[in-house]
């Protein structure tokens, strides 16, 4: 994504609002909610995204601020990526040691297909489910599905729905889920750190934050692993979708619908 729009720095209304959000949320600070054996971490960034959405519906935020905010997410994410990088350099020996795990966890991103596609088919969704579940449906995947099926196709509607879902709810959901999962499952925080590279800057930040806050003594290695995984996903993610994710989803969808309903399988063949 290139930032072409100019003079965004002059949007003082936007920057003052964000600055106010930062001050308020950092003063509120980190809070923990004990849920059974697990902990949900409430971080300033989580309040920030919710307050941000809320402010959109007040007269303080006009359409222009909301439009300008989008490239600013990208610009500020670059600082996070740089922070990832400077944590990763000193951890080079650990990264080399954990190299295989880093490479293979990329394949784990396909877990979305095996978890979400059966659910989508069970709920009665047709070919929409291919667009919905072949990946986490961020910008590159939106482009891929549009290119292959067109945005008005069932697959296109599916990926668009998940794109909107992820845009609005993704960072909030990951922020709540990541710390909770890390505290209730036996999976090691380092493994979760590697999982945070899911192809979206704000979702990575939201899922990494609770890990760093919950395991402060491991924070540096967690950040390094997260950064390396994020980098790998940003470079390889789209190709993994093209070469593995989408074909596997198509195949699995056909297998599942053949069992479930002969008719819909025939009609889907016409589309593909």
């Amino acid at each position: 994504m290139a930032v072409q729009a100019l003079n965004m720095w002059k949007d003082w209304r936007l920057h003052v609002l964000v600055f106010a959000i930062v001050i308020v949320t950092e003063f509120i600070g980190i809070h923990e909610i004990q849920v059974g054996p697990g902990v949900i971490l409430l971080l300033p960034m989580l309040y920030a995204v919710i307050i941000g959405i809320g402010l959109f519906f007040t007269p303080l935020v006009k359409e222009k601020q909301s439009i300008n905010a989008e490239p600013l997410v990208f610009i500020s994410v670059t600082l996070l990526i740089a922070k990832f990088g400077v944590q990763a350099g000193p951890a080079l020996p650990q990264l080399i040691e954990a190299g295989w795990a880093l490479v293979f966890q990329e394949i784990g991103n396909l877990g979305t297909i095996f978890l979400a596609l059966p659910v989508a088919v069970y709920l009665g969704l047709k070919r929409e489910s291919i667009g919905m579940t072949h990946s986490i449906g961020r910008e590159p995947n939106l482009a891929l599905i549009t290119d292959k099926y067109g945005l008005s196709s069932p697959e296109g509607r599916g990926v668009m729905a998940i794109y909107i879902f992820g845009t609005v709810f993704g960072s909030i959901f990951m922020g709540l889920a990541s710390g909770f999962l890390a505290t209730i499952t036996p999976i090691h925080p380092y493994a979760f750190a590697m999982a945070t590279g899911i192809g979206s800057g704000s979702m990575t930040a939201a899922s990494l934050g609770p890990l760093v806050a919950a395991f402060p003594d491991k924070a540096e290695t967690i950040t390094a692993f997260s950064g390396a995984s994020n980098l790998l996903t940003s470079v390889t993610g789209l190709y993994a979708s093209i070469l593995i994710g989408l074909p596997v989803t198509e195949k699995l969808y056909q297998v599942m619908t053949r069992k479930k309903d002969q008719d819909s399988e025939k009609s889907s063949r016409v589309v593909s």
Partner: peptide, 27 residues
């Protein structure tokens, strides 16, 4: 601190997300 970088990112994200809210509620 990493978390200090993340907060303004998600504040900007929140304000940007507001525009998608109508679409979101129709999902």
């Amino acid at each position: 601190n990493l978390l200090a970088i993340a907060t303004p990112i998600l504040a900007y994200a929140g304000i940007s997300i507001g525009r998608s809210w109508d679409l979101f509620t129709k999902l």
